[in-house]
Design a protein around this nucleic acid. Sequence first.
DNA 1: AGCCAGTACCA
DNA 2: TGGTAC
DNA 3: GGCT
Length: 501
Amino acid sequence: MPTLSLEPPVTHVLASGPDRLRSSAKAEDLERHSCVMFLRYEWIEDSLKEGKLMPPDPYRLIVHNTSIEKSLTSSTTTTATVAVGCLQMLIAPIAGPQKLNHKGKEESGALGEVVSSMIGKEGKQKKGRGGESDSEEERTKEEDCRGDILTRYLGTTAPAAADALEPCSTSLNTHITRILWELHDLYEGVLDDGNRALIYRKVASEIDKLSYKVTSASQLDKMEGIGQSTRVKIKEILRTGKLEMLEVLLANPKVSVLQLFMSVWGIGPKTATEMYNRGYRTLEDLKRESSLERMPRLGLKYYADILQRIPRVEAVELEKVVVGVAKELYPGVLAQATGSFRRGKASCGDIDFVISHPDGNSHRGLLAKLVARLTDIQFISDGLQDRSRGPQAPGHYEVDTYMGLCKLQGARHYRRIDIKVYPIRAHPFGLLHFTGNDIFNRRIRELAKKKGYKLNDHGLFPTVGEGQNIRSGTESIPCATEREILEKLGMPYLEPHERNW
DNA sequence: AGCCAGTACCA
DNA sequence: TGGTAC
DNA sequence: GGCT
Ligand SMILES: O=c1ccn([C@H]2C[C@H](O)[C@@H](COP(=O)(O)OP(=O)(O)OP(=O)(O)O)O2)c(=O)[nH]1
Ligand SMILES: [Mg+2]
């Protein structure tokens, strides 16, 4: 267990299962000595539902023998920085996603169009949503020297233990990286420049890994990936403790509105801006807009549910349902939950499935039947995308995909579900792809390219031809397992939980 | 100056 | 083809 | 925004 420390902005720590904290004397200590409460997941749900913070006592995970401190009650606490999931990750408030800060709007000064002038770049990246930040299953240890191997192959190390990339409870440099991570979030989101976000992500995570506290920009001279512009920013941060540019951005009410709109599934920077320009400022406003398409409409309809992360315990049940039905329909089928669930996360943004069939034929039409059955039993409620890949896609790889919403009987929330069905030869590639995470995928694809391949979720294709007409072969190098794929790339096998990059 | 992963679905 | 998503 |  890493040392835990709670930064002041964190006031509530939520956990998914009643047992989560039972063995944690440390947590008890923390609650006693810092102004932090450890509460059940339901506290935030009910608080959201009620529109106010609920009294904590009924939700407490830890009941002290001694009297319960009353320092933080609903009357004194007006906002809560919430991290959902279990211990480690909860701890640091910075980085990445995990800000359920739907801050109230404050009309501040006009502030020229800082944003709009910066909007309209390039880049397509993942959408900022609830944070995938939890700890993982207890890890025994191992995975030591492989960091070096990975450094050699990828030019960076995978997070040693726990999730780096995450707020990083161990970082000595959050005074710098908290700001860089915010820039990352903004560029990945409203500023719509994924490539620039990439830079901030890289720099922030590198600085988070340092074993000393940075007090002078010159200490970063030899760190690669830091250029003129970033260096100047870091100097300003070290000098003043903040970054003017960021302050200006965050003070701009337009930014908050765009962020709010983009938190709706199916609304990206373009639509958010369009809606803003049409004068909309709240989600209620958006609901009145008829031009919205299916995805954002469902995104609005299920807004609160989709925002909720899926506690692992529930994900386990979801997996049972889908895998159970699949096996019922097709004995011998290969079906499993992938994505963040397979990577061992304590909570998941959605639930992802990869399915195939070893007989090399039964995958055809499988998805349609499966979805029909799951709809039948009232597990699947709404389809967001369907389309058993017909004439569409150029290569028509015989991959069927489904995206929709589902709910366990009696459950509190609808959940997003993705299912992909692959022909058996592509199964390991589909598994690798759909297990992710996305950063990991991008890194290994980059590596593949350097080594003269193209890697996607159907195969590993040698780059052929030369000069003007370099292309990818049409025949994938066959691989029967994820291990084989990584081997071909000269990488050691990484367990799913080691792919949380 | 071009790349930064590679692909699918929908309107 | 542009927008969004995985 | 940095690297090649
Ligand atoms: O831009 C992306 C998004 C996703 N993926 C892959 C990796 C990812 O793990 C998987 C499933 O996507 P999802 O969005 O569900 O991410 P996740 O890793 O499962 O996290 P979450 O807990 O948010 O669902 O698809 C990519 O390769 N690129
Ligand atoms: Mg997922």
